[in-house]
Amino acid sequence: MPKFKSFEAFELDVLREVGNIGAGNAATALSKLLDKPVDMAVPKVSLLPFEEVADCVGGAEQIVLAVFLRVEGDAPGNLFFIIDEPSAKRILNQLVGLDHTDGEEYSEMELSALNEIGNIMAGSYLSALADLTKLSMSPSVPAMAHDMAGAILSYGLVQYGEMGDSALLIESKFLEDRQSLEGHFFLIPDPDSFVKIFKALGVVQE
């Protein structure tokens, strides 16, 4: 059982780099889809109390659109791609020419388009990670939800529930055209996966 409190600064740096490479690849994928430059913020790696995880995207009750993929293979975990409603509207408009009316429910077509975009981005995120670590990491079929951030993200924290009240997550944020499109990636590796990621990257623990 890994001791989370004892992560060294350089280990957090390694995880930050992991988030950077994954999200960098995903941002490139998005940039190609949109045919526009996409910026990325420096990823954040933090051990957060459950209560604060949803604050990263505006609080537990904030309505968001999320694509969730379970990562299977050598280093299992949960991957979320989360965007707010204005960003979803913009993506739909620019990518597939669908004009979503604010306040209306998303049509099956719209959800399916967002799901696919999330899938493409999550796929590039994971393949970059797999290349880097030489670990097998394959995404499950993506699932889509349009709901409260707290309800969605708590789903990815269940594995941590057994061992404490906080989770280690790697958060990467990217922006297109400054603020108008903002997306978040949350990689929440299973507690036991950290050892494998560190080992694969040549980080010697104790």
């Binding site: 009750e61 309800a151 009240d165």
Partner: peptide
């Protein structure tokens, strides 16, 4: 009431918890 938390309310208090998914 936070996640994985509990509390009691007396004298007209309102107890609130947000973002219940599988919880």
């Amino acid at each position: 009431v936070g996640m994985a938390d509990l509390n009691i309310g007396l004298a007209g208090a309102i107890l609130k918890t947000t973002g219940l998914g599988s919880c």
